[in-house]
């Protein structure tokens, strides 16, 4: 029974990574002979919404002179980030989206306000605590890739893993698996300067996912890529979110990429102006699907409910 659930969960996760709608995934599973009751349970775990990060009354102000203060974040009253979701933060240049991401990623500190990570208030942590969170809780993907120039693709990932306490042999094995997943295995011994922009960004994503942390922050990861590479990177992020269940917080000014997320947070002048649900509203019409399956098979309902 447990094996069946795992099998179904993996199928749902991978199908979602391919941007297949839940309705179609359920249809496929029913037609393959799975019972609707088991499938409903499996889908429900994907629709639970545990808050991983929460923001309350967040401000970030820069003092230019004694009487001039510029607010990058002008009071984000309330924003919840859910476990496993793909959240896009979008807005005009200067709207505060990167500032928000940097604060959430412990790269910058807020002037005021509260940030909760798994229910713990973390906005006023010491540098040592921030370092610990950066190491154990989150990964960062930057628009300028920010790879270690003196290290090969393989070493960029193993370095991260070693920082996280993984032994050298395990780290190498894992890094090769990740490079294989990224389609960069044949570039394992190339230095970043020998890779294209798209490959470098994929490597940066690889470094981030190898770390096995729940949160992944991506700051305009497609900003310096051509359209084809940008789309590949976005699909990769989508796949990482679905396959590994990582919570991804993406900053982008490209609306089409933002729409690949589950939700979009629109920022303007340092404030949240709109939170747009994209995919979490997916519902599955089980009675209809079961009926379809019955008709297709010409037999009785699979779970006896319909």
């Amino acid at each position: 029974m447990e094996n069946e659930r795992t099998l179904i969960s993996n199928y749902i996760r991978e199908s979602r990574a391919l941007n297949i709608q839940d309705q179609d995934i359920a249809r496929n599973l029913l037609s393959a002979g799975w019972e609707a009751g088991i499938l409903e349970q499996a889908f429900s775990q994907f629709q639970e919404r545990n808050i991983i990060m929460a923001i309350r009354g967040l401000y970030k102000e820069y003092s230019i002179s004694d009487d001039l203060v510029i607010a990058a974040l002008n009071g984000i009253a309330e924003l919840n980030i859910y476990e496993g979701e793909f959240l896009a933060i979008t807005g005009q240049s200067g709207s505060g989206k990167s500032t928000l991401l940097n604060i959430l990623g412990f790269i910058d500190s807020p002037s005021r306000g509260e940030i909760y990570l798994n229910g713990i208030e973390v906005s006023q942590m010491t540098e040592r605590q921030k370092t610990k969170y950066r190491l154990q809780t989150l990964s960062y993907i930057f628009q300028f890739f920010n790879l270690l120039e003196n290290y090969t693709a393989l070493e960029n990932i193993t370095f991260q893993l070693k920082l996280n306490g993984v032994g050298p042999f395990k780290a190498k094995k894992k890094a090769l698996e990740v490079l294989d997943f990224l389609g960069l295995k044949d570039r394992a011994h190339n230095y970043p300067s020998q890779l294209s922009g798209g490959q470098q960004q994929r490597l940066a994503i690889g470094r981030a996912i190898a770390k096995e942390v729940p949160l992944l922050f991506a700051d305009e990861p497609t900003a310096h890529l051509d359209t084809q590479n940008a789309e590949q990177v976005m699909l990769l992020l989508r796949e990482v979110n679905a396959r590994y269940g990582k919570t991804i917080i993406l900053v982008t000014h490209e609306p089409s990429y933002a729409r690949m997320a589950d939700r979009i947070v629109h920022l303007s002048d340092g404030r949240v102006t709109q939170v747009e649900e994209i995919k979490s509203t997916q519902t599955i019409d089980w009675p209809q699907l079961v009926q379809e399956a019955v008709l297709a098979r010409g037999t009785r309902p699979l779970d006896g409910k319909s």
Binding site: R128, T131, L135, N146, L147, L148, L163, N164
Partner: peptide, 16 residues
């Protein structure tokens, strides 16, 4: 400086 920033963003401590 940038490489140091990258390492810190990856979770490298001051001691490291």
């Amino acid at each position: 400086r940038r490489q140091i920033g990258i390492m810190k963003s990856m979770g490298a401590s001051r001691l490291f």
